[in-house]
């Protein structure tokens, strides 16, 4: 059989619908993992040994267990305890929790890199701990970790393909359907591979320029 891409043309709108679902899931999971990541990073860097220990256990567990196992745990487990949510929501939750573990590590090192002089100055100015975290620590840590957070996000996009295993027809799930409809799996998956690679490449370019913009006033080695 020869390599023929034209047979894919009629299926492009269907694949685009899948891509849109991937984009939605990733955007929601990005927000979710940033929120979780910030929270967990705050706990890990807190002065309470119990809280930082608990946060460490969460990160350690979710970083060392395959995502597909986590996904099945939620997908098959949640209905067991009476929580009935659709595959999309389950996928976004699982992605957010796994992504949160990775982002918290990045944000934590962003927090630890903050000059202690800044924190001491804030403390003697009489600012309360929550205010210091929200107004000083968080903006600095987030700003300096845009680039590493970007690689976490790219990983999230690649990982989102696994959502196809829980009946969700995102980009990879739609491609599976097209592959079995057209009997042209090689063309379909080869194109899909290129699409994902170009997508993540574009994202990394965008993140690079965002990082430089946000850190333009800082030393050249950070920006």
């Amino acid at each position: 059989m020869k390599f023929d891409l034209t047979i894919l043309a009629p299926h492009v709108p269907f694949l685009l619908k899948g891509a849109l679902l991937t984009a939605e899931a990733c955007a929601l999971a990005l927000v979710g993992s940033l929120i979780i990541g910030l929270l967990v990073a705050a706990l890990r860097t807190s002065s309470s040994p119990i809280l930082s220990r608990a946060a460490f256990i969460y990160v350690d567990l979710f970083r060392n267990i395959p995502f597909i196992v986590q996904l099945f745990f939620f997908f098959y487990g949640l209905p067991e305890i009476g929580i009935y949510i659709d595959a999309f929501t389950t996928g976004v939750i699982a992605l957010s929790i796994a992504g949160g573990a990775f982002s918290s590590d990045v944000i934590r090192s962003g927090i630890l890199a903050i000059d202690t002089g800044i924190l001491e100055a804030a403390e003697v100015s009489g600012l309360s701990k929550p205010v210091i975290f929200r107004k000083i620590v968080m903006p600095i840590a987030l700003r300096t970790s845009v680039r590493p957070l970007g690689s976490v996000f790219i990983n999230l996009v690649l990982t989102s393909s696994i959502l196809s295993t829980i009946t969700l027809n995102e980009l990879t799930g739609s491609a599976k359907i097209v592959a079995s409809d057209t009997f042209r799996p090689f063309e379909v998956y080869a194109v899909l591979l290129i699409v994902y690679a170009s997508l993540t490449y574009l994202i990394s370019l965008a993140i690079g320029s965002l990082h430089r913009r946000l850190n333009r006033d800082r030393m050249p080695d950070v920006a």
Binding site: T159, S161, P185, Y189, L192, I194, A197, T200
Partner: peptide, 25 residues
């Protein structure tokens, strides 16, 4: 190497498992 690093392993797996047999018989 960049292509392999920046695409989902699941898609690579499908390409080899479903795609190769269809293309190369």
């Amino acid at each position: 190497a960049e292509l392999l690093k920046n695409s989902p392993v699941l898609v690579q797996l499908f390409l080899v498992f479903f795609g190769l047999p269809a293309l190369a018989k």
